[in-house]
Design a protein around this nucleic acid. Structure first.
Length: 404
DNA sequence: CCTCGCCCTTGAGC
DNA sequence: AGCTCAAGGGCGA
């Protein structure tokens, strides 16, 4: 609304292979990004509203900041405000590079994964540019506590409500309020659990309230962030079970309320930067059964040991950034993106019209076009079938007869 | 170690 | 209209 500083649009050279905003921001990693004008993504982050859009060659960004944050700094002359703007632009750029996690080279990673995994090679082409975000660890933790027995739409609604009631207001875009994510301390009050229940969080209300208390009061300042990964070595092969730092982070997170192996792995991967974390949820478990021969013998059901076995299998298959590859297949399995897996096929239909005009029978044969949706990625067994598209069990070249 | 019932809520499918 | 079920699980017995 009033008193907002809107920066100019700036841009970074980024290809669609390195980042696809639409897939990355909608695949259930983060729950707060909102799309405007069918191209512009916005989210309140670190005291500003960040907006992103992209074309074939560049990522465009700008920030919107409240004007009253500089109350502590000396009155700004024209000169210093220009400097501030420059610093702010640099800072925003740094935030983007951090948040979008630009260090790993996705293009070569996709090549690598495709060369060792035929299934990945088959499914990935429609889901390029899926990056693992490096989100704030606390936000990731709360978001994924909300995710249990839940769907992305409702999780987003819950997180939105959480920010609305407990997060600081940053500003508005077109009547839309943007609140930052609330810090853990903001969720330690005695009425939080009951309030969250009223807001529809269900049994997760207790988890969040308790976890907030543990993080804000029992653990030392900066504890969550201390579990972060700082190294980046793309050629490293992860040891069995992952690197030491990942294992400790995972173990530590399990002590929190509402955090089991899956949620802990989500936080490790998307909030703490541990690329080898492979969250195995119902979707990934189904993928493991469908495409990687799990679900039989020793690993019939998703027990803790099976959970670890699935993660270890993907780590040895895909390498140190296994969690990144996993997210590509996860996205490829989401119903949200299912339209990408079908392709419109134009089918010729021979239509024979029989017109009766004054007793005369006029027959004319017309060929009309019709569009059908056909699955592109077929199952293993279907690849063996002879050529020829089959639509709903009917043959491709249908014939119809109609009397006009 | 594995298995189950339970936990909240919403929407889809029937 | 009412029921079941799944939606990116976790916990306790």
């Amino acid at each position: 609304m009033a008193n907002l500083r809107i920066s100019e649009w700036r841009k970074l050279p980024v290809s669609l292979a390195e980042l696809c905003l639409d897939t990355t921001l909608r695949c259930g990693q983060s729950f707060r990004w909102k799309k405007f004008n069918n191209e512009e993504w916005s989210c309140a982050l670190h005291g500003r509203i960040l907006s992103l859009k992209q074309d074939d060659t560049h990522l465009h960004y700008r920030s919107i900041r409240p004007n009253n944050t500089s109350s502590l700094s000396p009155p700004a002359s024209a000169k210093t405000s220009v400097l501030d703007a420059l610093n702010e632009d640099e800072e925003t750029e740094a935030l983007i590079k951090q948040y979008l996690n630009f260090t790993p080279d996705l293009t070569s990673l996709y090549e690598q994964w495709s060369s060792v995994d035929a299934n990945f090679k088959k499914r990935a082409p429609k889901f390029t540019g899926v990056r693992i975000l490096k989100q704030d660890a606390w936000e990731a933790l709360v978001g994924f506590i909300c995710s249990s027995n839940n769907n992305i739409v409702r999780i987003s609604q819950m997180v939105h409500n959480l920010c609305l009631h407990y997060g600081p207001l940053i500003g508005h875009i077109d009547d839309q309020a943007f609140h930052d994510f609330p810090p853990a301390e903001a969720l330690t009050g005695p009425k939080v659990e009951g309030h969250l229940r009223e807001l529809g969080f269900g049994y997760r209300a207790g988890y969040i309230a308790k976890t907030a208390k543990i993080v804000a009061k029992e653990k030392p300042e900066g504890w969550l962030e201390s579990l972060c990964n700082h190294s980046h070595d793309p050629d490293q092969k992860p040891p069995q079970g992952g690197r030491e730092g990942y294992r400790t982070a995972h173990e530590e997170l399990l002590h929190l309320q509402g955090v089991g192996p899956k949620v802990a792995d989500c936080v490790c991967l998307m909030g703490l930067g541990w690329g080898e974390a492979v969250p195995v949820d119902t979707h990934v478990w189904q993928i493991a059964q469908r495409d990687y021969k799990f679900g039989k013998g020793k690993h019939k059901s998703l027990t803790k040991t099976t959970y670890d076995a699935v993660g270890d299998y993907f780590r040895q298959l895909w390498g140190i950034e296994a969690g990144w590859a996993h997210s590509v297949l996860f996205a490829a399995d989401l119903k949200t993106f299912s339209e990408r897996l079908t392709t419109k096929v134009e089918v010729d239909i021979d239509e024979v019209k029989i017109k009766k005009e004054d007793g005369n029978v006029v027959e004319s044969k017309v060929t009309i076009k019709r569009e059908y949706l056909v699955d592109e990625v077929k199952d293993e067994f279907e690849d063996e079938k002879p050529n020829g598209v089959v639509i709903d069990g009917r043959s491709r070249r249908a014939k119809r007869r109609r009397v006009v």
